[in-house]
Design a protein around this nucleic acid. Structure first.
Lengths: 221, 221
DNA sequence: ACCAGAGTATGGTCTGACCATATACCTGCC
DNA sequence: GGCAGGTATATGGTCAGACCATACTCTGGT
């Protein structure tokens, strides 16, 4: 027995595909959808909640062009929620997350080196790390640095996964920095990575990232 | 203004963490949860729907030990849904998905070669591909082959991402095989990959995978 | 022309009811 | 005593209707 809201979900998805709806377009109101699909409003709401959870729409109350269910593109929050929950339930080990991060980062930094782009943002994040006061603040800019590398690869899927990985590891990253005590070596690593990207030397960039993560998460790699 | 169901969501998550709940454990019934948290049943239901969407629980009607909301570990379906929807909305390009797949597969095959495990399953999938009749059937076993490599890497997160990537690309994979016409070269590629894993030669394995995907998706890599 | 207040469409929430399903329990027969 | 079948019950699934909060839109007065 398929539940009604799954049916509604499928119909909405079909509609998106057939009508070629895209980001920014609006869905009919909940009451209207319920009437069209011959279901109760609660079933429609559960379907919309699923779509919202998956980051494809966002609901706004009120009236006017911005109100209602609007299609969006937020793949980050579902990925982050997914990782956080499955880590919490011990369906995943932290080492698997760290491993995945290493894989992505090596790949992304090599791509970034080939493209030779976005080094301005990287340098800015680096400067903020130098000025950071405390582990939390350091990790914040460290995250920005590493995510900027993923963005620079030009692959939005990889960048989204990277952001979510970092988000879900945030707590452990802060602990790792506190355990190290001094961030000088980490900052030196970052400079080495940035230099390699600037030189377009993808092999050196990948090696630099590998060394960096081995230092930050000893035993995991 | 945070919505009630988000509040409920946070409380349930907190409860999971504090009580150390894990896969197989049950949550209280919807009515009971609603009463405990002082909200309507619909708010509870929306929260549970979100958790179900994220692959963390599954609901069963009826009575007895298996009924109610049971914690589970299904990270695949949310990832698949996520990719499918965002591809459908053109938030992602197919080339980004293919790229990501190449990254994962190169990494996983190198790991598998180092571990030298799971080759039995790979050989079985290979045999089924030889016997396959039609592109659809071929792709099915091809997917099994490539996913088995990811499983063999020992990283569940990577394996889950791989399965979802393949699922969401399924349609395009069938098209690609039909376009090629003959699967002999693809099957030879697979044998080369398997041989490299058996030899524990991770560099050759990664090269074999790269060549293979370049053949299957020309222009994308 | 502008501003304030009423009107209204929208999502958010609650209540109570009923249905479907699957187990637990009880009853009666052997 | 044990087993078969029916009944009670707990659980999720669905609906209808009501009400609230919000934010735009329109109207009317100045």
């Amino acid at each position: 027995m398929t539940r009604k809201f799954e049916d509604v979900l499928a119909q909405i998805e079909r509609r998106i595909a057939e009508d070629g709806l895209t980001v920014g377009d609006r869905l009919p109101g909940e009451r209207q959808l319920a009437e069209q699909l011959r279901v109760g409003r609660s079933s429609v709401r559960e379907a919309l909640r699923v779509l919202e959870t998956l980051g494809v729409l966002s609901s706004q109350a009120g009236r006017g062009p911005d109100a209602g269910a609007v299609l969006t593109a937020r793949p980050d929050s579902p990925l982050t929620d997914l990782l956080r929950l499955h880590l919490g339930l011990s369906n995943l080990e932290l080492s698997e997350v760290v491993d995945t991060r290493l894989m992505i980062e090596r790949w992304a930094v090599a791509r970034a080196a080939q493209a030779g782009a976005g080094t301005g943002e990287l340098a800015a994040a680096l400067a903020r790390m130098d000025a950071a006061d405390g582990a939390e603040e350091f990790v914040e800019h460290d995250t920005a640095f590493h995510c900027a590398i993923a963005e620079a690869s030009g692959n939005r899927l990889i960048a989204a996964i990277m952001r979510s990985l970092r988000d879900s590891m945030r707590r452990y990253a802060v602990e790792a920095v506190e355990r190290l005590g001094d961030t000088a070596e980490l900052r030196a690593d970052h400079r080495r990575i940035l230099a390699a990207i600037d030189d377009g030397d993808s092999a050196e960039a990948a090696a630099a990232v590998t060394d960096h993560l081995a230092r930050a998460y000893p035993g995991h790699v």
